[in-house]
Design a protein around this nucleic acid. Structure first.
Lengths: 208, 208
DNA sequence: CGCCTAACGCAAGCATCCTTGCGTTAATGT
DNA sequence: ACATTAACGCAAGGATGCTTGCGTTAGGCG
């Protein structure tokens, strides 16, 4: 983030520093999954990592930055992007996987952490790239569908995925309603066909 | 919330207690709009309300409960629900109003406050009714459309609105992308017609 | 009017978060 | 191997959030 030193200070990326960094980030990821974002304290992370509290404060500064770094660095697998040959099944599988991930303590914490740190411009931008990279992968689903002629050529890939994912995210974030098992499928249908339910009328499009 | 006293203690709803309550809630609402949720402290609210800090702690306990009470009690106008005679224009106007509200410091704070307090079951349930009441009003748009024959009779009113509002909410919450002026209209189109873009084929429906 | 007590104000105190100064450890270049 | 110094540990201390005990104020009611 702040990797612009006009005066080239001799950094020490190997050895103890890297070891400490790994230990702290691993501890943060573990506590994130076990306790949740709000219960994650810097003191707790430092204790589990076997590191002094001061070190964490000096290297990361705030809880939000630490969590962000742990997410960016840690296993960045993301949601698996299926390729079944049809948009509907692809989107449904992806939505299902996303819903499953958001039901995970880690997934819930990641989403909440992003909200928590959305007031800091730097952090917000970092999270933006985080989501972007995840959505770009899923964008392949829509792009393939366009290439196959299942969707119009002027389809807005990002917006389409946003339409599919946003309801799942809000349910996970606001917690105002559980994510029913059939919700991913229903969302997929509504996104693809619209409220007017033209799946029958447009049958000829992408059917085998 | 915890208004279940088997032993009827003599409460005093009139006079000073009510005055204090009003002052505190008003101060909370003001600071919520001016500073945002995270910068809102109980000390600040008490100071502005001309009330001792202890009083606020005793009556509300936590910052989250205070904010919730301020939102439930305060001017509960919500988003205006238009009635233009056509779904498309109704939904577009509503989405526009929602986007405008979410761009407000207050609107943003309300959304974030709901996320912040989604781990407490009681608070989460209270927020649920809050959102529900707001969505129920907007549900009239969809219901009217179904009555007019613009939408299928098996349309899921709540889910339809969720599909329209969720993208706006996630943008406001995650802050990962600004809400462009034409986003409400685009969302409306996509929700009504689906990704396959049949707005042309169904031109006769709701265009002026 | 005058008693009773819910609700408030005040102040002390604890807990947690976060910062800072200083001495120590260990990675890096010669 | 040796000097240099980035990075860490330790301890003290300030800041803020939150609780608690006690005395005071002011509604509600006989």
């Amino acid at each position: 983030m702040t990797e612009e030193e006009p005066e080239p200070i001799r950094r020490r990326p190997g050895g103890r520093a890297a070891r400490v960094r790994q230990a702290v980030l691993a501890a943060a990821a573990e506590l994130l999954a076990e306790e949740g974002v709000d219960r994650l304290s810097i003191a707790g992370v430092a204790a589990r990592a076997g590191v002094n509290e001061t070190t964490v404060y000096r290297r990361w500064g705030t809880r939000e930055k630490l969590v962000l770094d742990a997410m960016l660095t840690g296993s960045n697998e993301g949601i698996p992007v299926p390729d079944t040959g049809a948009v509907r099944t692809d989107l449904a599988a992806f939505a299902r996987a996303l819903a499953q991930y958001l039901a995970t303590p880690t997934g819930r914490s990641v989403a909440r952490a992003a909200v928590l740190s959305s007031d800091d411009p730097d952090l917000a931008e970092a999270w933006q790239t985080f989501w972007q990279s995840r959505l770009d992968q899923a964008g392949a689903i829509v792009d393939r569908a366009v290439a196959r002629g299942e969707l119009p050529t002027d389809t807005d890939t990002a917006l389409a995925l946003e339409l599919l994912c946003a309801p799942l995210q809000t349910r996970a974030l606001l917690g105002h309603r559980p994510i029913e098992p059939d919700l991913p499928e229903r969302l997929t249908d509504m996104v693809l066909d619209g409220l007017r339910g033209k799946s029958q009328a447009l049958h000829s499009f992408g059917r085998s």
